[in-house]
């Protein structure tokens, strides 16, 4: 497989939501995502940034096949080099997702092992010994032991739950992981643990990440390429160092000047 070929491409994706008013008399249309094209490469991270409501999560869900685009399509390249074209919502084991709040997506009544096995069953894996080995591998990859596998989600801290979310995505051997604000709710100390883990997994497994975030210091540290979303559109896209060195769009400039300073001596007189 040629490494410079994208593993996933989004072509002119748009999504319009119709919302019905109170009593359902009128409907209004909200173009949440408007003509978004992007491509993800193996072993690389594409950061998607923008204010809340700009369409980042909706874009991520279309890439994962969780929702059907109003127009446009997604192509995912399989291991044999063939490409699958997706125009409707359809789960693809090559594309997995991790969320800001993994807890809400973890079944509280199942042990961790059961939760991970469920992910494998969904993609058709039945052999108990394969299930056991794959779950052990995924848990091991995120730094968990068999003892953790026997516990329930509520017994874990926020950072540990995010590890479980990552293990659940990894267990089916995906090529692409959509990370929807996976560290936004975590303390910086714990955030660093998760970012290091994601980077290590990328290096070991050649994963492509779409990394949705609003934290520009995380973007700079982790991503190779950045797309800036504003009102449903990607208004600027660049390699990460270039975006920070020479932002073009007004919104990108505003975003960069809004990043909190890292030392009090950098306060401007207006702020001090």
């Amino acid at each position: 497989m040629k490494s410079d070929q994208p593993v996933l491409e989004a072509h002119h994706l748009s999504k319009t939501f119709s919302t019905r008013s109170f009593l359902g008399r009128t409907t209004s249309e909200n173009r949440a995502v408007d003509d978004v094209s992007l491509s993800l490469a193996a072993g690389k991270t594409y950061a998607l940034v923008g204010e809340s409501g700009s369409g980042k999560s909706t874009t991520g869900r279309m890439l994962q096949g969780l929702i059907t685009p109003t127009s446009g399509h997604v192509t995912v390249r399989a291991a044999d080099g063939s490409t699958a074209v997706q125009t409707t919502a359809r789960a693809n084991r090559d594309v997995q997702m991790i969320f800001q709040d993994p807890y809400s997506s973890l079944n509280p009544r199942r042990r961790i092992r059961g939760i991970l096995e469920e992910s494998l069953r969904i993609v058709g894996e039945k052999d108990p010994s394969v299930l056991r080995t794959k779950v052990d591998e995924a848990l091991n990859a995120v730094g968990f032991s068999d003892e953790h596998a026997q516990r329930y989600p509520h017994e874990f801290s926020g950072g540990q739950r995010q590890r479980i979310g990552i293990a659940r995505a990894l267990v089916v051997n995906p090529k692409i992981i959509i990370c929807d604000e996976p560290v936004s709710a975590l303390d910086v100390s714990i955030q660093a643990q998760i970012l290091n883990l994601l980077r290590k997994l990328q290096a070991d497994l050649g994963l492509a990440y779409l990394f949705i975030t609003h934290d520009m210091s995380v973007v700079r540290y982790l991503s190779h390429r950045v797309g800036v979303m504003y009102h449903g559109r990607i208004v600027e896209e660049a390699n990460t160092p270039d975006l920070f060195a020479a932002p073009q769009h007004e919104y990108t400039k505003r975003l960069l000047t809004s990043v909190p300073i890292h030392h009090p001596s950098l306060r401007t007189s207006a702020k001090a």
């Binding site: 100390s189 714990i190 955030q191 660093a192 643990q193 290091n196 210091s217 995380v218 890292h262």
Partner: peptide, 23 residues
């Protein structure tokens, strides 16, 4: 530890971020 684990502008993308282990 809190200061170091914040990815600053000088954080080297080649290096792991310093962490505070545990919780």
């Amino acid at each position: 530890g809190l200061m170091a684990s914040t990815p600053g502008i000088d954080a080297d993308p080649e290096d792991d971020l310093p962490i505070i282990p545990g919780a």
